[in-house]
Write a protein that binds this DNA or RNA. Sequence first.
DNA 1: CGAAGCGATTGAAACGATTCATTTTTGTGC
DNA 2: GCACAAAAATGAATCGTTTCAATCGCTTCG
Lengths: 340, 340
Amino acid sequence: MAVSVKEVAAEAGVSVGTVSNVLNRPQVVSEHTVSKVTAAIEKLGFVRNDAARQLRAGRSRSFGLVVLDARNPFFMDVTQGAQHRALDNGYTVLMGASDNSLSTEQQLLDLFEEQRVAGVLISPLHSDLSRLWRIREAGTPVVLVDRGSGDRSFSSVSVDDVEGGRIAVRHLLDIGRKRITFVGGPQSIEQVQHRLTGAQSVLAQAPDAVLEHMPTKNLTVLEGRAAGERILAMDPAQRPDGIFAANDLLALGILQALVMSGELSVPEDIALVGYDNIDFAESAVIPITTVRQPAEEIGRTAVDVLLREAEAGDQAVREQFVFTPKLVIRASTVAPSQAR
Amino acid sequence: MAVSVKEVAAEAGVSVGTVSNVLNRPQVVSEHTVSKVTAAIEKLGFVRNDAARQLRAGRSRSFGLVVLDARNPFFMDVTQGAQHRALDNGYTVLMGASDNSLSTEQQLLDLFEEQRVAGVLISPLHSDLSRLWRIREAGTPVVLVDRGSGDRSFSSVSVDDVEGGRIAVRHLLDIGRKRITFVGGPQSIEQVQHRLTGAQSVLAQAPDAVLEHMPTKNLTVLEGRAAGERILAMDPAQRPDGIFAANDLLALGILQALVMSGELSVPEDIALVGYDNIDFAESAVIPITTVRQPAEEIGRTAVDVLLREAEAGDQAVREQFVFTPKLVIRASTVAPSQAR
DNA sequence: CGAAGCGATTGAAACGATTCATTTTTGTGC
DNA sequence: GCACAAAAATGAATCGTTTCAATCGCTTCG
């Protein structure tokens, strides 16, 4: 059914080698032959078989990207950035979400290995990177995304999450909040851990304030809503007056729960800070103060680093990019009247 | 560098055919041999080369999915549904967004053809389906997603957008609005066209109401904000008292513009209806009334249909799935006091 | 006029897994 | 101990593209 170079060659009256040259190095083929072959390709509707190309080449022209959650706009932005930069360099991005499941992460990596991807971009679920070591040892470069590499053994493109935690909580203290709750989990996600660490480090300097940690199973709107309900169920004396959510989806969920109940107002009773600055944080019931991460730039930079590693092969230099997060203040911490 | 079956065979002291059998039909191989081969695979860290498999098999175990906008949560949900159902059947989904660019759509289809995908799921940008005809004639099944096939020449899984437009506008009329504006574009997107058609059909029955059409370049929050500003700039006497946005992203943008200006209140001055029921519509400044589409189910069903077509080969039966949209009423059309 | 040089073209080998017709081994019954 | 069937294992051929050493035709030069 499918047309192959062989048939194109027959149709054009040349050899298969020539057809291949027309496809890959038209400069070395005479103009006349090029046009004959092009005509034959057109006539027969020939489409290159990528599997055969890859088999010969030994590797594909794709990168594999594993994100934590495909439905989180933050990761969509990272993906978008990566995809564009990859395309500019003639590469394709295979994207998959680990969705908080270690086995899904493994499956995706298996898949990428079978596809012989030219490189792996990954925001790993936990801190055991042994699988990634093996992949790299097999010759496939690996770059950590949105996550630093503690010992610098991998290249990484990330944002200083500890600092992000600090500026979020410092802001809550600045506006006079004393009972802060950090909502987020699971702890196995390093980003969550670091944001909490940052929060704690600021609290250590504020003797009259306290920090609680309310863990969640994941970082979704649904979990946020559940957390919000837990807060509503608390004894009013125990309730926080400031919440730092590990990401904007959680913050959105918390906000929904609080607003729907009608019992507590934001920011008066409880100030709320999210993380990521997804587009939707701005259009929330009460626009959410958040910590901005340059999502698309992370994606772009990660691909750049990967390209460099792929280029350099064995003696690739590990690169660590750490972006600095920025606080975006909105109505969820500062009432509009105050804001102006 | 990479380990092949040949090396595994040597290590295990068997032939390559046997290794292949262990991989694909372990029942026909003796237990003892299976364990020898498995051990060799383990020891050498063998990973199947998918390119070689595909080359032999003639087609891949992937479907290609082309959506209109990867950053629209609606399409993310469709993708999620498709991905899950595909995975359950041992398939993988390659996703790409056409992003309102015909050439990007073409590029994606080129890519999918080169990869010899087992099927194409697509939400096409416009109504010229000739390219899709050719793909199908080459033996690759094609299913239209979120879009009907006018002449039923393609299988499709969609939602009745005309009806969606009707229920949205009927609702606006029901709450007493007379000057309705449909915000959305480009017209080349069939979904937009149909929603408008539905809106017009209802208006035709309401002699005292009028419908304007405010076109947009695409269906993003940004375009929505621009549209909102155009509305704010209008002569108050000309302004609509009800807006039907072609999707929730637009609605979100419009809402942002209106709320930020502080001049007009929603729903009192202007009632707003969106489309898709993305999660974020619920957590908007003013929760948005919207028309719900069963996104994940669309994705799942589309894969089911594709699997059936792939199975049936030439004598595949075309299937048309049309889901019925449902109105979800929220504060953007009915003030909370009224709602209770 | 023959040799050298040059660009254009050729075609066989290679990539790695799978298939399948054949061969080899094992097991059973007499 | 033998015949025969069933089970297990083999290995050459195949998929479609790319690569590259070899060849072909021409022109140019001594």
